[in-house]
């Protein structure tokens, strides 16, 4: 990734100005948040049982959504990158649709599918008396629905840009397809996989719209950090600023962890 900087021509003036404007625009809200967060309350807030419950639920649900997204999303990415089948374009469009769908719409769609009066949820409810909405599993489902496409898209592009000759070489040496996948393909796409997983997890952690419409809001069962922030904003804004800041720190942590890709060395 190392390029020589001295050979690059300077950026045209207009590009520089607009680029700087973009940086200012992206930074100011974060500065605003940091300037209003009641820093001295951090220890109290982080030991508050209610906050800890919500934080724990957020982490558990988002990690579960990440696991589900990885288990289902990596094979989907592989199919999209390596195969052509009837309806491929449709499948590709469906796989990325949740990225462009307003999350609240996604949540309502999930209700209409998996709610107790939903298309499939009704069958489940009649058979078992149990339904997904208002459960922690419902939170995981909502988060997975919204976040998995980020992993699929990233891993798919990683697979596409892979130099196929390594896999072909392994095949000529007699490796089985599973062995190639395990020992050649996956290690080679590890950076894309890690980036996709990080994006997916961050998206799941920050998920609000689909969760509130599908899983509702109950502390300890379905209330995640973003929902708590939203409600705190109505009654206790400083606590909301601080909770937001905790989310911000986590997000920055993810970016720093992925620095090769998103904070790449120039």
């Amino acid at each position: 990734m190392s390029r020589s900087r001295s050979n690059e021509p300077p950026a045209p003036l207009g590009i520089g100005v607009l680029g700087a404007l973009a940086v200012v625009f992206l930074t100011l809200p974060l500065v605003g948040l940091a300037s209003r967060a009641p820093w001295s309350d951090i220890p109290t807030l982080l030991t508050d049982p209610a906050v800890r419950t919500t934080l724990r639920l957020s982490l558990t649900a988002s990690l579960a959504a990440l696991l589900l997204s990885t288990v289902l999303g990596v094979p989907l990415a592989w199919l999209l990158a390596r195969t052509r089948f009837p309806g491929w374009r449709l499948v590709r469009a469906l796989a990325v649709l949740p990225m462009v769908l307003p999350p609240v719409v996604g949540g309502v769609a999930l209700l209409l599918a998996f709610g107790r009066r939903g298309l499939f949820g009704q069958i489940l409810f009649e058979a078992t008396g149990w339904s997904l909405p208002f459960t922690t599993l419902g939170v995981i489902v909502a988060e997975t629905f919204v976040a998995m496409p980020f992993l699929v898209v990233t891993v798919e592009s990683g697979l596409r840009s892979l130099d196929r000759r390594y896999e072909e070489a392994a095949a000529t040496l007699g490796a089985s397809r599973w062995t190639i996948l395990r020992t050649v393909t996956l290690p080679l796409i590890a950076p894309s996989l890690a980036a996709g997983m990080a994006l997916c997890w961050a998206r799941a952690l920050g998920e609000f719209g689909a969760t509130i419409s599908f899983a509702g809001n109950l502390p300890g069962r379905t209330q995640t950090m973003p929902l708590a922030v939203y409600l705190q904003l109505e009654s206790n804004p400083p606590a909301a600023y601080l909770l937001s800041f905790v989310l911000l720190v986590v997000s920055i942590g993810v970016l720093v962890g992925m620095r090769d890709r998103y904070l790449g060395q120039p």
């Binding site: 209409l112 709610g115 107790r116 009066r117 208002f134 509702g216 809001n217 109950l218 502390p219 929902l227």
Partner: peptide, 21 residues
Amino acid sequence: APVSLETDVRAVLTKVALGEV
């Protein structure tokens, strides 16, 4: 023992109207 505490009253109505509660 509510199953959810909605962020506004219209959301409560929606959940009932959709038959989810």
